[in-house]
């Protein structure tokens, strides 16, 4: 009798100190019945991917407001692939210009949520897009 819970890692890569958005999203996903692991601030891509591996998550969500998203987000993606975690649904959010968001999606991010995205939209997207088998 398998009862899988959706497990989500919410991470804050890099040096920005603003995590209100990440916490709002984490609380909303919790209220949707997901198990949300929050990493805390100032994590390196390596720390985030270590945590994702140990926690065996279905989803990694990265919140970044510092402007270094084109540096840090692709790095998380590459590390996940190197560790064999291709099936993890990878999403991002924060202050990310449209052309950068498009480039990140081309790279392999499932979705980039910008300002104005509702928490319901994010939770719906995750529920509809996590892999059934892993």
């Amino acid at each position: 009798m398998t009862q899988r819970k959706i497990r989500v890692l919410v991470g804050k890569p890099g040096l920005d100190g603003h995590d209100r958005g990440a916490k709002v999203v984490a609380a909303a996903l919790r209220d949707r019945g997901m198990e949300v692991i929050y990493t805390g601030l100032h994590r390196t891509p390596e720390q985030i991917v270590d945590a994702a591996e140990q926690e065996d998550v279905d989803v990694v969500g990265l919140s970044i407001l510092s402007g270094s998203h084109m540096e840090l987000l692709p790095r998380v993606l590459r590390l996940l692939r190197q560790r064999g975690m291709q099936r993890v649904l990878l999403v991002g959010g924060g202050i990310i210009p449209d052309e950068d968001a498009a480039a990140l999606r081309d790279d392999g991010f499932a979705r980039i949520f910008g300002p104005g995205a509702t928490t319901a939209e994010i939770a719906d997207f995750i529920e509809q897009n996590i892999p059934l088998e892993r």
């Binding site: 819970k5 984490a26 609380a27 996903l29 919790r30 209220d31 949707r32 019945g33 997901m34 198990e35 949300v36 692991i37 929050y38 990493t39 805390g40 100032h42 720390q47 270590d50 945590a51 140990q54 926690e55």
Partner: peptide, 23 residues
Amino acid sequence: TGGALLGDRVRMDRSTGEGVFVR
């Protein structure tokens, strides 16, 4: 709701890395 917010890693910032597995 069955959901949970698992926050212990927030305080584990100094000890994650080689030789430590946190679940």
